[in-house]
Deep mutational scan, measured.
Amino acid sequence: MTFKLIINGKTLKGETTTEAVDAATAEKVLKQYANDNGIDGEWTYDDATKTFTVTE
Rank of each mutant, 00 (worst) to 15 (best):
M1T: 14
M1E: 10
M1A: 11
M1N: 11
M1C: 10
T2H: 09
T2L: 13
T2D: 05
T2R: 13
F3K: 01
F3S: 00
F3D: 00
F3R: 01
F3W: 09
F3T: 01
K4W: 12
K4C: 06
K4I: 12
K4D: 02
K4P: 01
K4L: 09
K4E: 03
L5M: 05
L5D: 01
L5N: 01
L5Y: 02
L5K: 00
I6S: 04
I6H: 05
I6G: 02
I6K: 07
I7V: 08
I7R: 02
I7S: 03
I7P: 01
I7C: 05
I7T: 04
N8Y: 13
N8K: 12
N8F: 13
N8W: 12
N8S: 07
N8G: 05
N8V: 14
G9W: 09
G9L: 15
G9H: 09
G9C: 11
G9K: 06
K10M: 13
K10P: 07
K10G: 08
T11V: 12
T11E: 10
T11D: 10
T11H: 13
T11G: 09
T11M: 10
T11S: 12
T11K: 11
L12G: 10
L12R: 08
L12H: 13
L12A: 08
L12N: 09
L12Y: 14
K13D: 06
K13N: 10
K13Y: 11
K13P: 06
K13A: 08
K13S: 10
K13C: 11
G14C: 14
G14K: 13
G14R: 13
E15K: 06
E15G: 09
E15W: 14
E15R: 06
E15A: 08
E15T: 13
T16C: 12
T16D: 03
T16S: 06
T16G: 04
T16K: 13
T17C: 10
T17N: 07
T17A: 08
T17G: 04
T17Y: 15
T17H: 09
T18Y: 09
T18A: 10
T18V: 15
T18E: 04
T18N: 03
T18H: 06
E19H: 13
E19P: 05
E19Q: 14
E19C: 12
A20T: 05
A20M: 03
A20G: 04
A20H: 04
A20W: 02
A20I: 03
A20C: 07
V21S: 12
V21K: 14
V21D: 10
V21H: 12
V21F: 14
V21I: 13
V21Y: 12
V21P: 14
D22K: 03
D22C: 05
D22F: 03
D22V: 03
D22S: 07
D22Y: 03
D22E: 04
A23K: 14
A23M: 13
A23F: 14
A23I: 11
A23T: 08
A23Y: 13
A23D: 04
A23N: 05
A23R: 12
A23E: 07
A23W: 13
A23G: 04
A24S: 11
A24G: 09
A24D: 10
A24L: 11
A24K: 12
A24I: 12
A24C: 12
A24V: 12
T25L: 09
T25E: 12
T25K: 07
T25Y: 07
A26D: 00
A26Q: 00
A26C: 02
A26H: 00
A26E: 00
A26W: 02
A26R: 00
A26M: 02
A26N: 00
A26G: 03
E27R: 10
E27L: 15
E27H: 10
E27D: 04
E27N: 05
E27G: 06
E27T: 04
E27M: 14
E27I: 12
K28Q: 13
K28W: 10
K28H: 09
K28R: 13
K28C: 07
V29Q: 13
V29K: 10
V29I: 15
V29A: 10
L30E: 00
L30W: 04
L30M: 05
L30D: 00
L30P: 00
L30I: 03
L30R: 00
L30V: 04
L30T: 01
K31H: 08
K31S: 04
K31F: 06
K31D: 02
Q32T: 08
Q32I: 09
Y33A: 03
Y33C: 04
Y33F: 12
Y33S: 02
Y33V: 05
Y33L: 05
Y33K: 03
Y33D: 02
A34D: 00
A34P: 01
A34F: 02
A34I: 05
A34Q: 02
N35K: 15
N35T: 14
N35P: 01
N35Q: 15
N35H: 15
N35L: 15
N35M: 15
N35S: 14
D36I: 08
D36P: 01
D36F: 08
D36Y: 07
N37A: 13
N37D: 03
N37H: 15
N37R: 15
N37W: 14
N37P: 01
N37E: 08
G38T: 04
G38N: 12
G38Q: 07
G38Y: 06
G38W: 05
G38H: 10
G38P: 01
G38A: 07
I39D: 01
I39M: 05
I39C: 04
I39Y: 05
I39Q: 02
I39N: 02
I39W: 08
D40S: 14
D40C: 12
D40M: 14
D40P: 05
D40R: 14
G41F: 03
G41C: 02
G41E: 01
G41L: 03
G41S: 02
G41V: 02
G41R: 01
E42D: 10
E42M: 11
E42Q: 11
E42L: 14
E42N: 09
E42T: 14
W43K: 00
W43S: 00
W43P: 00
W43Y: 03
W43E: 00
T44K: 10
T44H: 12
T44I: 09
T44A: 10
T44M: 10
Y45N: 00
Y45S: 01
Y45Q: 01
Y45G: 00
Y45T: 01
Y45D: 01
Y45E: 00
Y45R: 02
D46G: 02
D46I: 04
D46L: 04
D46F: 04
D46E: 08
D46M: 04
D47H: 12
D47I: 09
D47F: 09
D47R: 08
D47G: 08
D47T: 08
D47L: 07
A48T: 12
A48N: 12
A48H: 11
A48Y: 10
A48R: 11
A48V: 12
A48K: 12
T49F: 05
T49V: 06
T49H: 06
T49P: 02
T49I: 07
T49K: 07
T49C: 04
K50I: 03
K50R: 15
K50V: 03
K50A: 07
K50N: 08
K50T: 04
T51Q: 04
T51G: 02
T51P: 00
T51F: 03
T51K: 03
T51D: 01
T51V: 06
T51W: 02
T51R: 03
T51H: 03
F52C: 01
F52I: 01
F52Q: 00
F52R: 00
F52E: 00
F52W: 08
F52A: 00
T53M: 09
T53Q: 06
T53L: 05
T53E: 05
T53H: 06
T53Y: 10
T53R: 06
T53A: 05
T53D: 02
V54H: 01
V54E: 00
V54I: 09
V54G: 00
V54Y: 02
V54L: 11
V54T: 03
V54W: 02
T55K: 06
T55C: 06
T55E: 06
E56L: 13
E56F: 11
E56D: 09
E56Y: 10
E56W: 12
E56V: 14
E56I: 13
E56Q: 09
